[in-house]
């Protein structure tokens, strides 16, 4: 898991970035009320690709708990729905990365994660309020997943290249 000196510090940096992005996005105005880019998922994706699934789960959990506390939504229904969807998103990305090798790039992984997040969010919201009318949001959820997943994936790909240039992946 951690093979190089400074890996724990690197992971801490990613967790901090995840919290900042999560809170920033919760406070920033949105062009459409139901659409969220999922900037907090960027460090989770970077952790998954840099350190593996376990550290990525740690970053995702820290982001959800600390971000939830800071944005005032901790333990509320939106937190449970968003948190559950976040964990399922991590699980799907971790499984795809593990079992499909290099079939999907960073962008593909991110789209899978966004899709899992959106679909799980709809199911959890349905389980919470029990109104099947919610599923009318499915087409918008798919478009949202494609756009946000694709954009976050491209950002992750670019960030990984920049991190590589500054020696993020060096063995020493």
């Amino acid at each position: 898991m951690f093979k190089r000196p400074g890996d724990v510090a690197r992971l801490g940096l990613l967790a901090s970035a995840a919290i900042v992005l999560f809170v920033f996005e919760a406070l920033a105005p949105r062009p459409l009320p139901w659409m969220k880019l999922g900037l907090g998922n960027l460090p989770v994706l970077l952790s998954l690709l840099s350190f593996g699934s376990g550290p990525a789960l740690a970053v995702s959990s820290i982001k959800l708990v600390v971000g939830g506390l800071l944005s005032g939504g901790f333990a509320g229904p939106a937190f449970v729905i968003g948190g559950g969807a976040g964990l399922v998103s991590w699980l799907v990305m971790a499984l795809i990365k593990r079992y499909t090798g290099r079939l999907f790039s960073v962008v593909g992984l991110s789209i899978w994660g966004a899709l899992a997040h959106q679909l799980c969010q709809l199911l959890l919201a349905y389980a919470y309020i029990g109104q099947s009318g919610l599923f009318s949001l499915l087409p918008l959820s798919l478009i949202s997943a494609l756009l946000s997943g694709g954009l976050i994936g491209l950002l992750a790909w670019w960030t990984l290249h920049q991190l590589q240039k500054i020696g993020w992946f060096n063995r020493t």
């Binding site: 079939l103 999907f104 960073v106 789209i111 899709l115 478009i143």
Partner: peptide, 22 residues
């Protein structure tokens, strides 16, 4: 990770996935 350019980061599987979702 692809080493050159931004666009080659996409694989054929990515494109099929994006196309299917769209």
């Amino acid at each position: 990770m692809a080493e050159e350019g931004l666009w080659p980061a996409l694989t054929w599987a990515d494109k099929i996935l994006a196309f299917t979702v769209a």
